[in-house]
């Protein structure tokens, strides 16, 4: 369960996020949709506690990301945009490193890594060094790494970037599996079809603000557009008009 309340964040003169609020409930997939530079990544980085908000608050399962950041981090698995692996370690070692850092008991680590390898179907290359992995392979290993401590909330920043059709499909199936297991999944994308196909709730962000937050059907209804892409453009233009 992720709650975001009136978040503000500036980098110098650039106001990246200006009052973003939304809820992402457990057992559902929430999509953060918006054009490039809308403030999606900044919002997510506040959530996985890499940066601190200027004002406003956010919490993970009721733990504030600033004042209780360690407790909040225990409950999130984060896949930052362009997450890198350690090229000299095998995929299994990469995953096990995170398992150890998350303080999993030594005798459980092997089992835990094995089950996550099964879940993500990465057994074919898990014992190879990650140097030279394809983008799809890297994303899967980075995701496995993020999920190794079995977090209740999963934050994915543009996870399908650079993936081919097959890799995107299998990632989509995986995100559905995470939802079915009762997790809260929050992911960002600038690709409309992807969000429409997958998300229960959609939060459209433009220019650092929430343009609209609803289900796909709700958004179509409220904007009066049948096509989600038209609705997206409509919502963004509405934010632009109020400036």
């Amino acid at each position: 369960m992720i709650k975001v309340d009136d978040l503000h964040k500036s980098f110098g003169d650039v106001k990246a996020v200006r009052g973003v609020s939304f809820d992402a409930p457990d057992g559902k997939i929430t999509g953060l949709l918006g054009p490039n530079g809308a403030g999606k990544s900044t919002t997510l980085r506040v959530l996985y506690t890499v940066i601190q908000p200027d004002s406003g608050s956010a919490s993970i399962d009721g733990h504030d990301v600033v004042s209780e950041s360690l407790a909040a981090r225990k409950r999130i698995g984060a896949l930052p945009h362009g997450a890198g692996l350690y090229p000299q370690l095998t995929a299994r070692e990469n995953i096990a490193y995170y398992a150890k850092l998350c303080n999993l008991p030594g005798n459980e680590i092997d089992d835990r890594v094995a089950s996550i390898v099964d879940l993500l179907e990465i057994g074919d290359f898990v014992d190879r060094r990650t140097k030279g992995f394809s983008q799809g392979q890297r994303t899967k290993v980075a995701l496995a790494r993020a999920l190794v401590h079995d977090p209740g909330n999963v934050i994915l920043d543009e996870p399908t970037n650079g993936l081919d059709v097959m890799a995107t499909r299998s990632l989509r199936e995986l995100i559905l599996k995470l939802k079915e297991s009762g997790r809260c999944v929050l992911f960002s994308s600038h690709i409309m079809q992807e969000v429409a196909a997958l998300c229960d709730d959609i939060v459209i962000i433009a220019a650092g603000q929430v343009a609209i937050e609803d289900t796909a059907d709700g958004i179509r209804e409220r904007t009066g557009c049948d096509d989600l892409e038209d609705a997206f453009v409509h919502a963004i233009q509405r934010v632009g008009a109020t400036e």
């Binding site: 980085r45 996985y48 506690t49 890499v50 360690l70 407790a71 981090r73 225990k74 999130i76 984060a78 896949l79 930052p80 362009g82 997450a83 890198g84 692996l85 350690y86 090229p87 995170y98 850092l101 998350c102 303080n103 980075a142 790494r145 993020a146 401590h149």
Partner: peptide
Amino acid sequence: GERERGSLEPLVSLPVN
């Protein structure tokens, strides 16, 4: 190097000190 590789952000988002 860790930052350039993009492995620093996931590392510090782990529940560790």
